[in-house]
Design a binder for these strands. Structure first.
Lengths: 348, 348
DNA sequence: GTGAAAGCGCTAACAA
DNA sequence: TTGTTAGCGCTTTCAC
């Protein structure tokens, strides 16, 4: 590997520049209130010695870490099947970078890891946390709450209205409504729905959106899926069997829609002539590659990540300056919902 | 958000347990050489107070961080288009977790970020780094080297044999050979190749593997792609145009193969009867969903991540105990190459 | 086996 | 403006 050269300390820089440690510290942290010639000298010494501040020492006194934890639960699930996760991370990373914060990734799979995450969060390693809690009965939100770390959730946590935890979500319900309305506007009357995994709020919300429009839909027009292509296939077959006269399908995500498309083709139904199909996500590698390309509801995943990070960082900054930083002290919205847009391609 | 309760310190635990700080420290770090009754008392106090050690303070004295940086360059590229990246991270995360190490993720996109990464690595925040350097002229390896942090690379870096940097890679060349041999074994004589992005070692290695078998292949049977479905389509069209008599194609990855499949279907060639197709990766959401399902070369991405982490951690552990931890001190292999396997499905 | 004390590298009062 | 000083919370000799 490589050798570990002992890094120079503040002390060394101070000696070299012929000033005190305090002055070096000031310069390194912005140079406020230090006269120009000294600043120069210090900067030169820093340069020559290749000095980089020791973050551990700094954190010890400032209690800041310039780091944020990103907790992603159960990577077994669909999070890993599509680029969702990666895009989200990219958005978060960009925002954190711009704020000079580091991203500490905590992947969990199961109860054992929960304890570890709790300990880590409580251990004061990070200034805040971004938590993706996809499942309805996830213990993570509760746990994070207890750790006492400022947190923003990705996706609406499954909590009553009483809890004012901050979260960012897509307008799943509104998007679903738009999808179904679009199908209805196309003249379709027998619109089916392939749900997502119903233990996730996003799937529940999309189902609700479907119901908002198809007010008293034939219950046989709703088939449960799980956000996977295989689940989409199964659900599509069921739908076709129960309602052969079906003329449109709204699938809870693009992956499921791709499965549905395959079944429709196999059974000789033309898309969109016989059955129109709309997905959700606008996951490019999926939506653009299906045959026919998928009409779908687009959500801006990367922006979601960005926004989560921004919200957290803002809260952390406030904390530093203002006094009323108690829970729910600010009267802003506790949930931010991002709009979705319909993307027309060939499937509907 | 949430309030920041002041966390109890070692001092507090010591007071509560009626012992010295030193004793608490010993217990917290394994309890060696502390008599049983005291251990009990301390543990109880820790429990009651909910004490969690402050990592910053600990790092300050131990110079260990129990954290490893994962550097991923240019997330714009295909890394984000397929679950590659996520799987790799999962493998890494599992191994690090088992070793009580944290994963600090550094995503970079461009030169500006390089400087930041360099600074971070040099700043001594982490014990080591796992670096994915996909591109041939990537400045990252060089930079990391200079930062003086123990590093394991993901994918063979583009370096001469002189450099003994540690890396983990799939047997791209061997896998490609196996794919092409399989096609030849099927009786195919006009085997084409759709390359990956040739600025990545993996693409180059796969092309080399292809050439190993098709020793003096008609150069027109090789078309440059870029690991994307669109690139696969373009290359396939070109191939068909140049060599209408082609009877098999080896694509550098599954995504490209899926594009090729679409073009073949559109042009009325039956797969595998007229043209047999083999991919690379065995990216499940892709390979299983194509029509027909893809015969492909499987690489175990998650295991790659795991292995990278394991190699790094082992090196770090050695460093602590042994004396000869200089660069290249051990005579073990500097590159570990994981085997690939052929997965037969319907496309060949 | 246990405690006292020094100090890791830095920031933040406070003095000068 | 600059320097002096006192810790931040922990580990680690070194005595006892």
């Amino acid at each position: 590997m490589t050798e570990t050269a002992p890094r120079p300390t503040l002390e060394a820089v101070a000696a070299r520049a012929g000033v005190s440690r305090a002055t070096v510290s000031r310069v390194v942290n912005g140079g406020e209130g230090v006269r120009e010639p000294l600043v120069e000298r210090v900067l030169r010494a820093v340069e020559e010695l290749g000095y980089v501040p020791n973050q551990a020492a700094r954190s010890l006194v400032t209690k800041r870490h310039d780091a944020v934890a990103v907790v992603i639960a159960e990577p077994e699930t669909r999070v890993f099947a599509d680029p969702f996760f990666a895009l989200q991370l990219r958005g978060i990373s960009k925002e954190l970078t711009a704020h000079d914060s580091q991203l500490v990734l905590l992947l969990t799979e199961g109860r054992a890891d929960h304890a570890r995450v709790g300990r880590y969060l409580a251990g004061g390693h990070v200034d805040g946390a971004l938590v993706f809690s996809l499942h309805l009965d996830d213990p993570l939100p509760e746990l994070v709450q207890r750790a006492g770390v400022p947190t923003v959730f990705g996706g609406r946590p499954d909590w009553g209205e009483g809890n004012r935890s901050v979260y960012v979500d897509s307008d799943n319900r509104g998007g679903a409504r738009e999808a179904v309305r679009y199908l209805v506007g196309l003249g379709r009357r027998r619109v089916g729905h392939i749900t997502g995994a119903l233990d996730q709020t996003s799937a529940v919300d999309r189902l609700d959106g479907f119901r908002d429009v198809m007010v008293d839909a034939d219950p046989r027009l709703i088939a449960e899926g799980d956000f996977t292509p295989a689940g989409g296939e199964r659900a599509m077959r069921l739908l076709l069997e129960r309602c052969p006269d079906l003329d449109a399908v709204f699938a809870a995500n693009d992956l499921a829609a791709s499965g549905a498309l395959r079944v429709l083709r196999a059974q000789g139904r033309r898309v969109p002539e016989d059955v129109a199909v709309v997905g959700f996500d606008d996951m490019l590698p999926v939506a653009e590659q299906t045959d026919p390309p998928l009409t779908t509801i687009r959500q801006d995943i990367e922006e979601m990540g960005r926004l989560m990070a921004r919200l957290l960082l803002r809260a952390l900054d406030r904390r530093g300056t203002s006094l009323d930083d108690g829970p729910g002290a600010d009267d802003g919205p506790s949930g931010v919902v991002l709009p979705t847009t319909l993307v027309r391609r060939a499937s509907a």
